[in-house]
Amino acid sequence: MLEFIRQLGRGGISQFAKLGRANLFMLKVLAGFPGLLRRPGLLVAQLWSVGVLSLMIIVVSGLFVGMVLGLQGYNTLVDFGAEESLGVAVALSIVRELGPVVTALLFAGRAGSALAAEIGLMKATEQLSGMEMMAVDPIHRVIAPRFLAGFISMPLLAAIFSAVGIYGGYFVGVALLGVDDGAYWSQMQAKVDLFDDILNGVIKSLVFGWVVTWIAVFEGYDAIPTSEGVSRATTRTVVYAAFAVLGLDFVLTALMFGD
């Protein structure tokens, strides 16, 4: 019994220690940002691998999510003779929720896992220690550009997802199911607010981008430097990122739309 309580305590302490390490790590990464101004090439290379290479999955998913919403929304709304509101339904659900959340989940799977695995492997093959030997700070050189690239990419990807999704809903609703073209857009423009809906969606995606990339680079950096440790870090990245995104989404939604 005593042993069990002791283990519980050990687990708690190690979790808190990890949280502390993550926060100190974040501070160091932030301190590395000014150095990036002198070497924008590093950032561009990471924007390529984190942002551009995620474009495909984001565009395709956004298109299909929008199309499914168009189809489902139409089937529900047509019973009430309210299929003209399809544009509002699609736009609000995508801009407020699905755009930021689905993008963040896909981003965690596509870019977050890659970041964690890459950094973890760098650690396992002692490339990070090698940099330290050469008096190059690996956090400034390796982590900071990756973190900043993720933080920049995520809101852009979410915006692309939302725009593509709304056009996907437009394609299904207007072109295939015969909702009126003008009603789709005009009802949407009447009900979607620039600040309440779109800006809050962008804020959500900024928060998610921050958290997902933070988890990814920290898990990679904190990984046990063995092949098993790297694989665990990659798994944890996706799982924790998904938890964090969904939990934060509830909190943010309650704060933004809860009045």
């Binding site: 924007l47 942002g51 852009l156 990807l157 009900k191």
Partner: peptide, 27 residues
């Protein structure tokens, strides 16, 4: 790489612009 990254950022900003102009009540 630089070209593609530039296009990516432009596409993201364009999507935001579309959301603001076409979808919301800004107009």
């Amino acid at each position: 790489t630089e070209l593609m990254v530039g296009m990516f950022i432009a596409a993201g900003l364009a999507a935001l612009f579309v959301l603001a102009m076409q979808v919301s009540n800004l107009s």
